[in-house]
Simulated scan of single mutants.
Amino acid sequence: MNTTYLGLELKRTTRDFVTMFFVAVLPAFFYVIFGASQEYSGENAGNGNVAMYIMISMAAYGAVVATTGIGGAAAVERMQGWGRQLGLTPMSDGSYVVLKSAVALVIAAIPIALVFTLGGFTGAEGTPSAWIGSALILIAGAGMFSLYGLIFGLAFRSEAAVGAAGGSLVILAFLGNIFFPLTGWLLTLAKFTPLYGYAALARYPLTEGFTIDTTTGTLIEQPLWQPLANVVVWTVIFALLATWLARRGRGRQ
């Protein structure tokens, strides 16, 4: 991997203060508003408390915003001529993909680290396995949303489309049971949306699959295979769609 180019890409991304606000600062703000500042934040939630539950959810949102933006920007860069410029260098297509993946993971780790650090100072509590397990799942699983951003970049070939992809994550986050607990038919619908499985898996070390039905106040257990299947199916869908769009783009050239 070209570490010099990696460093330049990281500097370029982190210097975009508007992007970094939505990637890192906004999820941290959401955690403070919906988690740390609420009276119920100290109540038990599996292997920790409610503050940690909300902390993981907000970190998940920040991580997918990061990887979606990186994936979409990579597609737009290639189609706007940056790929031809890189073709004059020794860097191969494979190296470019690996480098962009590394950038996406590093940028995704920023909101996770910020929100987790903030949670540690504002009452989020959990077992060591819950902290470590959720953080690792958040970083590993966020990569699927780089494909989501890639789809928008390949389909519409503009930076505005990439911004729209990031904006659509707000809707997916609501439907994905991230911002507040869903019940009834909304919860049933949520299980088929792409962010649901990712967030549920990230919270699994904390909740062990249990959620609270806010209507009845009872605990509901969700088998592990459900969020796993959600992540696998959506990753396959994103990968197939991105591959098809990439081939279609080459066919037009």
Rank of each mutant, 00 (worst) to 15 (best):
M55K: 00
I56A: 02
I56E: 01
I56R: 00
I56H: 00
S57Y: 00
M58Y: 05
M58T: 01
A59S: 10
A59E: 05
A60Q: 01
A60F: 02
Y61K: 01
V65H: 00
A66S: 12
A66T: 05
T67E: 06
T67H: 00
T67V: 05
T68V: 09
T68C: 09
G69C: 05
I70T: 04
G72P: 04
A73L: 15
A74H: 13
A74E: 13
A74G: 07
A75R: 05
E77F: 10
M79K: 10
M79D: 12
Q80I: 07
G81Q: 09
G81S: 08
G81L: 06
G81C: 10
G81K: 04
W82M: 14
W82A: 12
G83K: 14
G83H: 13
G83Q: 14
G83C: 08
R84W: 05
R84A: 15
R84G: 07
G87F: 10
L88P: 07
T89E: 13
T89N: 09
T89A: 09
P90W: 09
S92E: 06
S92T: 15
D93T: 15
S95M: 14
Y96N: 12
Y96R: 15
Y96I: 14
V97M: 12
K100P: 01
K100D: 14
S101A: 15
S101W: 11
S101T: 15
S101N: 10
A102Q: 10
A102K: 13
A104F: 07
L105G: 11
V106L: 11
I107T: 06
A108S: 11
A108I: 04
A108V: 04
A109H: 06
A109R: 05
A109K: 02
I110W: 04
P111F: 04
A113Y: 03
A113T: 13
A113E: 05
L114W: 01
V115D: 03
F116V: 02
T117W: 13
T117K: 00
G119M: 06
G120P: 10
F121C: 04
F121G: 02
F121L: 14
G123E: 06
G123F: 07
G123H: 09
E125G: 05
E125R: 13
E125M: 12
E125H: 11
E125W: 06
T127H: 03
T127P: 02
P128E: 06
P128L: 02
S129K: 10
S129W: 10
W131R: 04
W131L: 03
W131Q: 03
I132M: 11
I132V: 15
G133I: 04
G133T: 11
G133Y: 07
S134C: 03
S134R: 08
S134E: 09
I137C: 09
I137F: 14
I137S: 02
I137A: 09
I139S: 08
